[in-house]
């Protein structure tokens, strides 16, 4: 849903193909809700309910209600979108909605974040966390090759010590902590 390449913030009076595409991209939300509803309903209906059930409603009742409501909301939202209703993109202090979405940065950040999930085991938190911070700052446009890695390393080490040693929340030390 994040690769439509259309400008999410163009005023509604924007006409032609662009407006049509915008409408279509929000229909993706309806599709997701629809799929989610089907998923919840299928899961509920195929559930074994042989297990002795206490009380009049069992483990499937609420999922069925939620699943049906998901389908209903998906349809209602689609109707709303087709009638010209638009979800208002969220604003904020650092958000400039007049520019088109920069989805390349988002993809880069997601990649860096996934890399951290993979590396935290083998490399340990102090290294993978530093890479996460440096990588994210780089993706966001910071290019200072001495200050960025330095801040990343210090932040990561301090966080490791605070959580692991002071707060008693274990984080993997990895080979680096083995050496030190």
């Amino acid at each position: 849903m994040s690769t439509t390449g259309t400008d999410p913030t163009a005023p509604p009076r924007d006409s032609g193909l662009r407006a049509l595409l915008r409408g279509r991209s929000e229909l993706g939300v309806c599709l997701i809700l629809l799929v989610l509803g089907v998923l919840v309903l299928t899961d509920a209906i195929t559930m074994d309910t042989d297990i002795t059930q206490r009380g009049p409603i069992g483990p499937t009742t609420v999922p069925i209600v939620v699943g049906v409501l998901l389908l209903v909301v998906a349809v209602l939202l689609a109707v709303d979108v087709l009638r010209g209703g638009r979800g208002e993109a969220e604003g904020g202090e650092d958000i400039d909605l007049t520019e088109p979405g920069d989805w390349r940065t988002v993809a880069l950040l997601a990649g860096v974040f996934l890399a951290n999930a993979v590396l935290i085991g083998p490399l340990g938190f102090p290294i993978s966390g530093a890479l996460l911070f440096w990588g994210s700052a780089y993706a966001l446009g910071s290019r200072n090759l001495t200050r960025d890695p330095l801040i990343a390393a210090v932040l990561s080490l301090v966080t490791y010590v605070v959580f692991n040693n002071l707060l008693g929340v274990p984080l993997p030390g990895g080979p680096l902590m083995g050496v030190l």
Binding site: G92, D94, L97, E99, D102, V106, A139, G141
Partner: peptide
């Protein structure tokens, strides 16, 4: 995460 990614997509230059 949702907020950080959303800001990243529309970061005020």
């Amino acid at each position: 995460i949702g907020e950080a990614l959303w800001v990243a997509a529309h970061l005020r230059r």
